[in-house]
Computed example of a mutant assay.
Amino acid sequence: MPSLKVGLLALSACLISFSSAAANTMTLSGEYSFYTDEMSMEMIGKNICMSPDAQTGKQIPRSKNDERQLWFCFSDYEQARKALDIPNQAPEKGCGYSGKLTVEVSDYHVNQQQNDDFDVAKLIKVINYQKPDVIECMP
């Protein structure tokens, strides 16, 4: 009869294989955004998000039949805000900030539910970035 320790190890291996997280690091390039308008704050909250480009986005762990747009938010808002020099306050005329960047991320968690939640990743290092531009508000 297997020991409890062997059983727990087997269970842990099964859970890890079905996890929606990528623990290894990825280097991604694309565009970041931080929306400050009321509707975006209700939907996304106070989060800085990234849309990887098509080439580097191939690293993101998605199933073949998952055709959702590739984007995620950084798990630590304050760390990302400081690293990307995003002002702490909303722009006087505009609805947020955006720019291009290349970053290293880890602990990528895919939201596999059909809901309003989003993927999340931990920002490890900013390799390069464009100072934030103000996002124009949509009419």
Rank of each mutant, 00 (worst) to 15 (best):
T25K: 05
Q79F: 12
M43Q: 14
G57Q: 06
A83H: 03
C73N: 00
L15S: 02
Y77Q: 04
L11W: 06
M43P: 00
Y32K: 12
C49E: 00
L70Y: 04
L15H: 01
A21H: 11
A10Q: 09
L8C: 11
L84C: 03
T25A: 11
A80I: 00
L28S: 06
T27M: 03
L9P: 02
A21T: 13
D76N: 14
L9K: 09
A80M: 01
T56D: 05
K64E: 04
S12D: 04
V6H: 05
D76K: 05
V6S: 11
S29M: 12
S63D: 09
Y35F: 13
W71Q: 04
S51N: 13
Q55M: 13
F72T: 01
K82F: 05
D85R: 14
C73L: 02
M41F: 15
L9F: 02
A80T: 06
I48V: 12
D66N: 09
A83P: 03
K64T: 00
S20C: 06
E67K: 09
I48T: 08
I48D: 04
E38M: 03
D53H: 11
T25F: 03
S51Y: 12
M26H: 10
T56N: 08
E38H: 11
F74W: 02
I44T: 14
G7F: 05
Q69C: 02
S17K: 02
S51L: 12
Y35I: 04
T36Y: 10
P61M: 11
C49A: 07
E31T: 15
S75Q: 05
Q79R: 10
D85S: 15
G57T: 11
F18L: 04
G45Y: 08
Y77I: 01
A54D: 14
G45C: 06
D66R: 03
